[in-house]
């Protein structure tokens, strides 16, 4: 028994030592932003064409779709490298039947594994739900809703230069008035390059109550304080965004006052 234990301990020690050496020599993760940004659009195009075939659509090719992706991991403070389920890829493509939203892309959630393979979940608004009805009326799995792919761990790792803007959205569904009469509104700045910046104008009808300049990092949900009192009796206010960085709602957002 002692012989067995000694042998197994030695085996584990050898594996550990080999690993320590390999780690010391420098084994950075092969999972990088650039490799994902090159691999995902190609796989997406193939899956999108498979979906088009199921739907009986013709005339689409990988070249006509011309998908491009900007991928990043976690928030602005997390390096865009390594396996994890917190990767996000913003993918834009051109399909005449499916116009892109104003920001020009859909947000794909990506779980990347240590073996250089990854699982992608697409935005149902743009690619449809998990199952679709094919051209013959059968319910089939949507090839784009979720798919798996792998990239070459030694593949091209130079930056692709693809960037997409963040999307700014108000999260608050009402304008809350604090005990001191001040009001605030919570907004979210989504994943994208450069975050969100601009000016928020709070309007009471046609009268501007306050101007709030903002500069928000991507993937953040701060609360913007409005430095003005809302007149008593006002039922609603309009939020008008003038964006310099990122994409903000193009039309005024009307919020009830509470």
């Amino acid at each position: 028994m002692r012989r067995i234990l000694i042998t197994l301990a030695l085996c584990l020690a050898v594996v550990g030592a080999a690993g320590a050496v390999a780690t010391a020599i420098g084994g950075g993760s092969t999972v990088t932003r650039a490799r994902l940004e090159r691999s995902l659009p190609a796989a997406f195009a193939n899956r999108y064409l498979a979906q088009a075939e199921l739907l009986g659509r013709r005339g689409l090719t990988a070249a006509s779709l011309h998908p491009t992706a900007m991928c990043e991991r976690g928030g602005p403070d997390v390096p865009d490298v390594g396996a994890g389920s917190d990767w996000v890829c913003l993918v834009g493509w051109s399909d005449p039947a499916v116009p892109m939203p104003p920001e020009g892309y859909g947000k794909f959630e990506v779980a990347v594994h240590a073996n250089d393979c990854y699982t992608v979940s697409g935005p149902s608004k743009l690619v449809g739900f998990a199952t679709i009805e094919d051209v013959r009326g059968r319910t089939v799995t949507n090839p784009v809703a979720e798919f798996d792919a792998c990239f070459d761990p030694a593949g091209d790792d130079t930056p692709t230069g693809v960037t997409y803007p963040s999307v700014l959205q108000p999260l608050s569904t009402a304008l809350t008035v604090g005990p001191d009469g001040r009001t605030s509104v919570q907004v979210s700045c989504g994943a994208g390059a450069g975050g969100c910046a601009g000016t928020l104008t709070v309007m009471d009808g046609t009268r501007a109550l306050a101007e709030v300049p903002y500069r928000i990092e991507e993937q953040a949900t701060p609360t913007l304080v409005v430095p003005a009192r809302v007149p008593a009796g006002a039922k609603t206010v309009d939020l008008v965004f003038a964006s310099t960085v990122g994409v903000a709602p193009p039309k005024p957002v009307t919020l009830p006052v509470q």
Partner: peptide
């Protein structure tokens, strides 16, 4: 059993160097 342990270790994203030599 060693194979299973190595699989688990190799699946940890933080140990890329070790993964290569397993």
């Amino acid at each position: 059993a060693l194979g299973l342990v190595m699989q688990l270790v190799g699946a940890l994203g933080s140990l890329q160097g070790l993964r290569t030599v397993l």
